[in-house]
Amino acid sequence: MIKARITVTLKNGVLDPQGKAIEGALGALGFDGVGSVRQGKVFDVEIQGTDRAGAEADLKAMCEKLLANTVIENYSIAIP
């Protein structure tokens, strides 16, 4: 079994209203000095019955087809 973590974030230049809302809420809670906040998604995926190269190919396909909107999002795949 191969375990992987996929992190999906908005590309630079894409507006992030949720990140802005979090930034404002942190300031309202008294956390001074918080700069820019960008939000994203994390997926922990377990794949059975494949080798590392096959897993990487499958994970990339998952990102391209479902997990990330590649027009506005970047993704990274980490396999420990």
Results as ranks from 00 to 15, higher is better:
Leu10Val: 11
Met62Leu: 09
Gly35Lys: 11
Glu23Tyr: 00
Lys3Ser: 12
Ile6Cys: 05
Val14Ile: 13
Phe43Arg: 01
Ala53Val: 13
Leu67Trp: 02
Glu56Gly: 08
Met62Lys: 03
Asp32His: 13
Ala28Asp: 11
Ile77Thr: 02
Val42Phe: 10
Val14Asn: 01
Lys65Arg: 14
Glu23His: 08
Pro17Asp: 00
Asn12Phe: 12
Gln48Trp: 02
Ala68Gln: 09
Ala78Trp: 00
Val45Asp: 09
Gly40Asp: 02
Val71Ser: 08
Arg5Cys: 12
Ile79His: 14
Asp16Cys: 02
Gly27Cys: 04
Ala53Cys: 10
Lys41Cys: 05
Leu66Met: 11
Glu73Phe: 01
Asn69Lys: 10
Thr50Asp: 12
Val42Met: 11
Phe43His: 08
Thr70Glu: 05
Leu59Glu: 05
Gly13Asp: 05
Gly19Glu: 01
Leu26Gln: 04
Val71Tyr: 00
Thr9Arg: 07
Gly49Asn: 10
Glu46Cys: 15
Cys63Phe: 03
Val34Gln: 08
Ala53Ile: 07
Ala68Val: 04
Gly27Leu: 12
Asp51Met: 13
Lys20Val: 07
Thr50Ala: 15
Gly40Arg: 00
Lys20Cys: 02
Cys63Gly: 02
Arg5Ala: 04
Leu66Gln: 02
Glu23Ile: 00
Gly49His: 06
Lys60Trp: 10
